[in-house]
């Protein structure tokens, strides 16, 4: 996994609640057996005026001028501001794959859906939960000033606004450590292989019917 330490990035606002993973990456792209290449189809139904198909040349498709991420001022954005319950719905990891491939590294919102939140960390994408009032203020500032950037420091657990205000955020220490180092979860877990084996043997003895 790609480590995440610090980022000074352009911010884009996606001002709607309950953005679901079907919206982040529609189902026809889930037929891929690869992990990469989903970025051009992130938010496909909002971003383009036609219906996307796997394998199509997205550079030739008509863009929806009303979709916020298509505005010139947000090109190259690496931080996405969101509203409540971002990433709800399906467990498809294609959603964080698409956001990461699009270029996002940080998501900031008042709340995220559980499975999406979890999947993001596995892909070097940092979702940050802030109070709704803080998020409101970031939306206001971002929309008011073109080229709005934020500095995110994972080690210090801070977001710094252009006006100098620093906002602290929470993160599980274990997740933080994994993300800072880009650690592979599986490698970490396999350090406990003996413990897993012992647990399994005990469970097999106690509940043999789960091992039929």
């Amino acid at each position: 996994m790609k480590p995440f330490t610090q980022l000074d990035g352009l911010v884009a606002p996606l001002d709607r609640a309950n953005v679901d993973t079907d919206a982040i990456i529609p189902k026809q792209f889930l037929k891929s057996i690869k992990r990469s290449g989903f970025g051009p189809n992130a938010f496909d139904e909002w971003r383009y005026l036609d219906v996307g198909q796997p394998g199509a040349d997205n550079s030739k498709r008509p863009l929806n001028p009303d979709f916020v991420l298509n505005q010139a001022r947000y090109q190259g954005a690496q931080i996405l501001l969101t509203r409540d319950n971002f990433g709800c719905g399906s467990s498809r990891e294609h959603a964080p794959w698409a956001l990461e491939d699009y270029g996002f590294r940080v998501l900031i919102g008042p709340s995220f859906a559980d499975i999406f939140f979890n999947n993001s960390f596995k892909n070097g994408l940092l979702p940050i939960k802030l109070d709704a009032a803080e998020v409101d203020e970031l939306f206001r500032q971002c929309e008011a000033s073109e080229g709005y950037r934020l500095k995110v420091d994972l080690a210090a657990q801070t977001i710094t606004r252009p006006d100098g205000k620093s906002i602290a955020f929470d993160i599980d220490p274990f997740r933080k450590e994994c993300l800072l180092n880009g650690w592979d979860d599986i490698g970490l877990t396999l350090r406990h292989a003996d413990k897993i084996r012992a647990f399994e043997e005990q469970r097999r003895a106690q509940h043999p019917y789960y091992f039929a």
Partner: peptide
């Protein structure tokens, strides 16, 4: 998610 599918397969 799929990363966790791999994690469960492996561990």
């Amino acid at each position: 998610g799929t990363s966790e599918v791999e994690h469960v397969l492996a561990t």
